[in-house]
Design a binder for these strands. Structure first.
Lengths: 216, 216
DNA sequence: GGCGGCTGTGACCCACGGGTGACTGACACG
DNA sequence: CGTGTCAGTCACCCGTGGGTCACAGCCGCC
């Protein structure tokens, strides 16, 4: 990508050549990219501002000319990542009126999210800064908000009470989120779409009958 | 020092009186208790060794007479917590041969675990030290191992291939884990057993039919 | 009673990393 | 060609916190 004549790259971290100047806007997005890579690879605490600056081929003060502090930088990236999945989730739910397809589409969203090249999902699902309220709030919002949209459908179509709908929805989100991460770690023994379809099937079987209590 | 001769009992943080000596064994478990409280309340990074020592009414070097370092202390607690849920999960699965009851029992285990007073589950499900391989390995082991036991049942009873069984099992674990944490955060609008039963119902409906593919 | 072995303490060391201040070098413009 | 501007750098500050050293009270025991 951009520049990187030598790049070397090698393992995971690569000091960029450190040569050229850049217009402010451009530099800013480049810094965001570098920061994302470093945060994803190392986590918030292990990532030093120096690392991010080096990664971008720039010295530390430049970073501070664009972002007031480490936390702000992190939050900017986190927000982007949170919004992405929430929006995708919303679109998936709105894409059809067939609930079986809704489940499948939503599951696909989670698997795509986790599979995306940059690994930004790690900021959301594997953040190591959950003790920071600002971070916690955003991370929780992903589950809460996705679940809330799903819960609306459940409540509407089944008449279950709010709390139950919400809890069911959260458990579907949890299922998607955890299984997708596990699938990713597994290294591709199952194709992405197959995995998503399998779990979508599980989810759909689970909720389709509500609220009729047809136990055994 | 600090007024509080009377302990005050304390709501959240309390310097213990700091008076007495203690036999080594006893001190050790007390330190573990204090460390758990602090790690649970603050997370690994925000917790200082001084905090833990203070919490136990003791000075820092005492801590180092019992544990070689902060990480070791953390890992000791983490191990305990990991083993607890894995063992409970195993017992739940072994407690019956009726799969519907198995699901219910296992779900109850997760809800009890999360509801337990000490909050030790946070070390496992909300650790902020996942960048440390030793921690990562243990945290992952919980999901992996629980899922593996569940997957055995699934594979045996349905004949599904290994990878599919494993993925289904993981998604059930994810469902349990995420929904239980959400339920806890909700603050008790639904009773623990009701919540567990609700999600167990969802899970059971999901898997009971496999491998017959009765879509729509 | 003094002496070895505990448990325990106050004070200190030092690496690490977030954040800053003073300077430089290129370029556009009048 | 001076000069303002803006990207960029080097070197530094300093709070925080993990980890350690030398010393202090208490105990039981010959």
């Amino acid at each position: 990508m951009t520049a990187g004549s030598t790049d070397t790259t090698s393992d995971g971290v690569h000091p960029r050549p450190r040569g050229g100047r850049m217009p402010r806007r451009e530099r800013r997005v480049q810094l965001l990219e570098s920061a994302l890579e470093v945060f994803v690879a190392q986590g918030y605490h292990a990532a030093a501002m120096d690392d991010i600056a080096d990664r971008a081929g720039v010295s530390k003060p430049v970073l501070y000319q664009h972002f007031p502090g480490k936390l702000d930088l992190y939050l900017a990236l986190l927000d982007t990542s949170c919004d992405l999945i929430i929006d995708n989730c919303r679109e998936a739910l709105a894409s059809t009126n067939d609930n079986r397809e809704r489940v499948a589409a939503t599951m696909k969203v989670f698997y795509s999210y986790v599979a995306s090249e940059e690994g930004a999902f790690r900021l959301v699902f594997e953040s190591d800064l959950t003790s920071e309220p600002d971070v916690r709030e955003r991370v929780d919002r992903v589950t809460t908000e996705c679940a809330s949209m799903i819960a609306d459908v459940i409540r509407t179509d089944t008449g279950l009470p709010d709390e139950a709908s919400e809890l069911l929805a959260v458990s579907l989100v949890g299922m998607a989120q955890v299984s997708a991460r596990f699938w990713l770690a597994g290294g591709g023994e199952i194709a992405q779409d197959d995995a998503a379809a399998l779990i979508a099937g599980l989810a759909w079987r689970g909720i389709r009958g509500y609220p009729m209590t047809d136990d055994h």
